Amino acid sequence: MAERIAVRFKGRGESLEDLYQVAALGLVKAVEHYDPARGHAFEAYAVPTITGEIKRHFRDHMWTLHVPRRVQDLRNRVRSSMKELSQSTSGHAPTVAEIAEHAQLSESEVRAGMEALECFSALSLEAEMPGTDGYALGTPWAARIRRTKWSSTA
């Protein structure tokens, strides 16, 4: 069960083996805190506990900077509202007021969430950067070879 939950989070910047370990820790916590007297099935308690442990791991260990949970939540709400609104509006980017209404946030909270969208994303060393002609930062030799190849044939 823990491994099935961990697999849902693969491809988000953490190795699958590490996700398995975090999920196993969540399973141990679920076993320790489960109370059968409450009348719920163990799985109904364990799944959210394991999922929460994995999300907590991402929140606490995967950000380059420590970002307060409140700001992370604002960022996520603003991002999802922008995505939903951009699909429903007629080709224009949603305004701060539209996002605030849709996300049930104040305009200042939306602005804080928008700033977090721009400020707190770490780039992978293999991320494509503007002006690199599609070569990732992790492949400087490929760019050098390409420049050499084109300059020698010109």
Rank of each mutant, 00 (worst) to 15 (best):
E115F: 07
A100G: 05
A127K: 07
L16D: 11
V78T: 05
G91W: 02
G131N: 01
H102M: 01
T132Y: 10
P36A: 12
A93P: 06
V110M: 03
H40A: 13
F9G: 00
I50D: 01
V67H: 07
A127M: 13
D35C: 06
W141K: 06
E32A: 08
G131I: 00
F42R: 03
R111H: 10
I99E: 01
A93C: 13
H102Y: 09
H40S: 11
Q21S: 07
S106D: 14
S80V: 06
E84G: 04
R111S: 08
G91A: 03
R8Q: 13
V67F: 10
G91L: 04
I50K: 01
E109N: 06
G91K: 06
E109M: 05
A44Q: 12
A93R: 15
R59H: 05
V110C: 06
K10P: 00
A112Q: 14
T132K: 06
L19P: 00
H57A: 11
A46M: 04
R59D: 04
T49K: 09
R77K: 15
G26Y: 01
Y45F: 14
S90L: 12
A24G: 09
A6Q: 05
E101T: 04
T49W: 01
E101K: 04
S15A: 13
V22S: 00
T64N: 09
H57Y: 15
E107K: 09
W141I: 09
E128Y: 12
M114R: 08
V22P: 00
D60A: 06
S86E: 15
W141H: 06
R38L: 15
R38V: 06
Y34F: 14
A6Y: 06
T89C: 14
D60L: 08
G39R: 04
G131A: 01
R56Q: 09
S106L: 11
T89A: 10
S81I: 01
S106H: 07
S81C: 12
L65F: 15
A23M: 09
S80G: 02
G91S: 03
V28S: 03
V7F: 14
E109S: 08
L74E: 02
Q87Y: 11
T49S: 05
E32G: 02
A103C: 09
M129F: 13
S106Q: 09
A37W: 10
G11H: 02
A23F: 07
A136D: 10
E14K: 09
E118Y: 07
R59C: 02
F120S: 08
P94L: 04
L137V: 04
R75M: 15
L19D: 03
G138W: 02
A122T: 15
H33Y: 05
A44S: 15
E32H: 04
V71D: 06
A112P: 02
M129D: 04
S124H: 15
S80R: 12
M129S: 08
E115G: 03
R59Y: 02
R69M: 10
V96E: 07
K10T: 11
F9C: 01
I54T: 00
R8A: 10
W63H: 14
A122S: 13
L19K: 01
E84Y: 01
S106W: 05
S124G: 14
S80T: 05
L137D: 04
A136V: 07
Y34P: 00
L25E: 15
L123N: 12
R79F: 12
I99K: 00
